[in-house]
Amino acid sequence: MKIHPFLIEMVQIAVLLFAAPLFAGWVKMVKCWSQGRTAPSLFQPVRDIRKLLSKDVVLAENASWIFRFTPYLVFGVTVLAGGIIPIISTDLPLAATADVIALVALFAIARFFTALAGMDIGTAFGGMGSSREMTIASLAEPAMLMAIFAVSLASKSTSLSQMVLVVSQGYSILQPSLAFALLAFILIALAETGRVPVDNPATHLELTMIHEAMVLEYSGRHLALIEWAKMMKLFLFVVLGISAFFPWGIAVNDDLAGILAAPAYLVMKLGLAAVGLVLIETGLAKMRIFRVTEFLGSAFLFATLGMLSFFILE
């Protein structure tokens, strides 16, 4: 039985919207367990979002339209990105909207506006967050592009569906170029989603925060949208890694069995990915901001070695 691609697209966006908070909750749970703390419920992030959505907005006196527009834009961009990345199936009507490079640029729009919103209210924290975020982004970008390059060499494509299709056939993870690209991707994803060695998602301590500093003044539904988008971004980066490097189990044609099996595989892989993320986050300490240069420099090195080893070894 075939399912229409548009339906799959709808299902996928629904999965994104609801699975992202659950994934965030799962990461928190695993983290608590690993540190010997009592974990909050898996549904805690969902409850947080619901609570924030029902609250009134308190807006800074001098906030302009940019500050109010940003949450909607960030949310919109992230949802669109979720329609492009193959989560459960590679046959998506929106997949042709953007290849990986355009996808990176979509996330860049969200970042651009978040940084502007941070500067809009004119506090020192907001400006600090924006400045650091843009600095880290500009260091992550070359590494990201190199990683894309290394992966696209194997699949001869930058279109995500095509990359997933090619990788899902054969022992591609044994290819050195992909192994290096995966290493690079993990480092970049940690930086892009603001996880521990680069930024601390749990802290509100002024001197260490980057992303939190920009969105400090948000409240009510605006904050809900921002937080939700942040969870979706983490989810999407993890899924992007899974799809690009471990795509086995993803549905490649529109039949029902594949579509039904794909989420089961995905849940399993996400569960493992969360454990990996927690291991990294508990094993490493947050870096000084100027050490991030070396962190992302090594990501660039890995990606470049990936590219080189494709030509040298394959």
Binding site: Y171, L174, Q175, P176, A179, F180, S309, L313, E314
Partner: peptide, 11 residues
């Protein structure tokens, strides 16, 4: 496969 693993080890 051996050659591929060898490449990976070289990497």
């Amino acid at each position: 496969l051996a050659a591929q693993i060898n490449s990976l080890l070289a990497a």
